[in-house]
C-alpha cells in the first residue's frame, strides 16, 4: 500500500495560510491503514487547526470529512458541496488524492497535509518499510522475491556492493542490505547459481524515466455511446 506521514504542523499552517474556511479531507484507504490521513487523523488535525488558529487570534472554521478513496471520482462527488463552501481543501490523501481533488474541483485551492513516502507494508505495529519502487518491470522472479531496486540503496542488479557488512547497508545500519537478503533466500532455496548470471542494464523506460506512465485496457473501456 501507499505509506505516507503527516507534514509538520507549522508547514500545514503555512500551506493553509490566510484561508478562513478549511475542509480537511481524509482518505479511507492506504493512509488510514498507515495512520496518516484517515478519519481520526482528519478530526485530530481539524481540531488542532481550530485551536491553534484561535490561540493565534485568527480563528478559522475548520471542518473535516473522510471519503472512502480520494483517488476515485465517484467518492469525490459525495463531498462536492462541502468542497465548494470552503477557501481551501487540506487533503490528507496521498499525492494521488491531492491531485484527484485538484482535477475534480478545478475552482478549488487544494494543499497537501501529508508527505507521500513510499510503497510498502507495516513490518510491525507503528513501523512501515519500503518494498516496491514501481519500476514497471518486475524482476522479483530473479531475486528470490526481494526487490533490489527498492531495497538496495544503489538499486544494483548484480549483487552487493562493497558496502555490505554484517547484513547492513553502508548507508545506514538500520537498513538491511537488500542483496544480503537476496543472497540468504537464494541460498536457503538452493538457487544461488542464479546470482552468478550477469544481469544486463535495466530498461528504465517502464519506470518514471520514460515520462508519466499510463495503462490502457481496451477490453475494460466503455464504448463511446455509453
Amino acid at each position: 500500500m501507499i505509506i505516507a506521514e503527516q507534514k509538520p504542523f507549522e508547514e500545514i499552517k503555512s500551506l493553509v495560510g490566510a484561508a478562513q474556511k478549511v475542509l480537511v479531507v481524509g482518505c479511507g484507504t492506504c493512509v488510514t491503514v498507515c495512520f496518516a490521513g484517515g478519519s481520526r487523523e482528519a478530526a485530530i488535525l481539524a481540531a488542532s487547526l481550530r485551536m491553534a488558529s484561535k490561540l493565534n487570534g485568527d480563528p478559522k472554521e475548520v471542518s473535516d470529512v473522510t471519503v472512502q478513496r480520494q483517488c476515485e471520482w465517484e467518492y469525490l462527488d459525495s463531498i462536492a458541496e462541502q468542497v465548494s463552501a470552503v477557501d481551501v481543501v487540506l487533503s490528507l490523501g496521498c499525492g494521488i488524492g491531492v491531485q484527484a481533488i485538484a482535477e475534480h474541483f478545478p475552482k478549488t485551492w487544494v494543499v497537501p497535509g501529508l508527505n507521500t513516502a513510499f510503497l510498502g507494508l507495516p513490518a510491525e505495529q507503528g513501523v512501515w518499510v519500503e518494498r516496491c519502487a514501481a519500476c514497471g518491470d518486475c524482476i522479483l522472479g530473479l531475486t528470490a522475491g526481494v526487490c533490489p531496486i527498492a531495497r538496495c540503496s544503489k538499486s544494483l542488479l548484480n549483487g552487493p556492493c562493497g558496502g555490505s557488512q554484517n547484513g547492513h547497508c553502508e548507508v545506514n545500519p538500520d537498513i538491511p542490505c537488500g542483496w544480503q537478503l537476496i543472497y540468504d533466500r537464494l541460498k536457503a532455496l538452493g538457487k544461488l547459481e542464479m546470482l552468478y548470471e550477469i544481469r544486463p542494464p535495466k530498461n528504465w523506460r517502464t519506470s518514471r524515466d520514460g515520462g508519466p506512465r499510463k495503462i490502457v485496457r481496451p477490453d475494460l473501456r466503455l464504448s463511446e455511446e455509453e
Partner: peptide, 8 residues
C-alpha cells in the same frame, strides 16, 4: 505533543 504543536 499535539498540545505543544497547537500552542497549549
Amino acid at each position: 505533543d499535539l498540545l505543544r504543536m497547537i500552542g497549549l
